[in-house]
Amino acid sequence: MLELRLVQGGLLKKVLDSLKDLVNDANFDCSATGFSLQAMDSSHVALVALLLRSEGFEHYRCDRNLSLGMNLSNMAKMLKCAGNDDIVTIKADDAADSVTFMFESPNQDKIADFDMKLMDIDSEHLGIPEAEFQAIVRMPSAEFARICKDLSTIGDTVVISVTKEGVKFSTRGDIGTANIVCRHNTSVDKPEEATIIEMEETVSLTFALRYMNSFTKATPLANQVTISLSSDLPVVVEYKVAEMGHIRFYLAPKIEE
């Protein structure tokens, strides 16, 4: 028996909106730790790891570890029917072939339940080793989204370079080139407006903008994004999910031939 009650149901809507274009079907794993997911896109270029810790739920009952195979676009359709302020409860019986999403309005005057068919998914679980990163950039998530969107109008790839000057996002295309440099800046009114660059070594990697733009669908989840870079490793683009977890996108770099 699984029963997870999330007061901030809107968070789950935002999580699904940030996943559904990248991954079609995935297993949600429920354990005492929390509600999590790990999935790759169909071409195995990107991987997403979601964790919503059990403590973040108002009520978290998971009698035994359970894997719920869901079509993410169908799950997103169901969650779209919840109000942004609704309390969302996810319920499933052990060995069930469906999952129930229950939506309660904040003042309890409307209660809805949606039942969605589960699917069997052969998913591969990958071990993600702990890595020391050469550079970690924290910046406003909206700024990062703007940069990825702007650069993708000019080129298909972005070179992200971190030096003592700051972090540089560059692209080139048929019409020309573009470079955007963001400097370390903590003299801001609000902490979420800061750009913090921690650099152990200079690093420069090339990535497909199409995927970066897909990751920025998670922007409504968090004011800040963390971009962790190391030579010859996938970049990690991380958004916090309130105080309860994170969504991490890993993207394999382009490799010089």
């Binding site: 270029v45 679980h125 490799i255």
Partner: peptide
């Protein structure tokens, strides 16, 4: 020219 890397060449199946 550059070639798109693959996640499976960085992370192993467990």
């Amino acid at each position: 020219d550059s070639k798109q890397g693959n996640i499976l060449s960085f992370f192993k199946r467990v």
